[in-house]
Design a protein around this nucleic acid. Structure first.
Lengths: 148, 148
DNA sequence: TAGATAATGATAATCATTTTCATTAATAAT
DNA sequence: ATTATTAATGAAAATGATTATCATTATCTA
């Protein structure tokens, strides 16, 4: 859970200004364990900072995603959801998604096998199809405890 | 490539009527190798059948998806894309997706290893999180030959 | 062949996201 | 510190994909 100064520093490195919206959005994401949509973030912060605009939330999330601070999960229907990305490979995980309520659960089972398979597959596909592979997703869809 | 009668029969089994829009949409999907969006399907069929409505395309695709005839791929941004689902496990495959032009390539490499890992993971997750798992996705995102 | 009802298509509505643009605030230069 | 530069913001409108509404039409059933 890196603090404000950590982020502030990483922002400066990227020629981006350190502003209140950015600070409170990062702060919320680092306090929240859930994957939140733009509207949820907006709703959660509105009380604290009523001047905040939904547009800014979208723009900030887009920036955080572009800088690699945040991962965006867009599966099935409904809005995109965001989570802070941990440092390096040690945070490797994938998602279990409820198709009814949209809840997302991180899982970290069989990580090593996954990494091996992904690496192998990625190399093969990149070569075979002349693709520049930048990312991958593995996800399981279904109904959570509450929705089943 | 099952013909009209095959589909017609499977529709009847499901208490759904066999109509012209359904026939031409299924026919197009079985002739096309690409994963098509609703609008692309609409566009491709409009010349043949100018009465066709975009709404009907969406509804038909939703029905085909619900009946399990069609798979829907919704990754990253842009519209959902659809492909006919082959029969049984022997058509097991996943996707390589270009984030720029939206092109989707099916791949079938390391199928057995994937199936094993997925099965194992699915069982573990279902038990651990009390989830009813209905589906899974594995996808690689990046830039295709033309867009890189 | 007629009656029941499911499917269709035009239109409007919704939902998530992006664009526009005038205003404000953060940093750089003085 | 003060000002100038320019990025960031927020309100509103625009866009794009998809869904809901509803009167009309077509398919199947009796």
């Amino acid at each position: 859970m890196p603090g404000r100064h950590h982020w502030q520093h990483r922002f400066r490195e990227n020629v981006s200004r350190w502003t209140l919206p950015r600070e409170i959005i990062l702060d919320l994401l680092s306090r929240s364990s859930r994957h939140m949509s733009a509207k949820e973030i907006y709703g959660a912060l509105y009380a604290l900072y009523p001047g905040l605009g939904l547009t800014t939330v979208y723009r900030t999330l887009e920036l955080l995603h572009r800088l690699g601070f945040v991962q965006k999960v867009t599966s099935g229907d409904g809005p995109g959801r965001y989570e802070l990305r941990g440092e390096g490979e040690k945070d490797h995980h994938h998602h279990l998604i409820c198709t009814k309520c949209g809840r997302i659960i991180d899982y970290r089972d069989f990580v090593q096998e996954e990494l091996d398979l992904i690496k192998k597959t990625e190399e093969t596909l990149a070569k075979k199809h002349n693709f520049l592979i930048q990312d991958h997703n593995i996800e399981f869809l279904g109904l959570c405890e509450k929705c089943r």
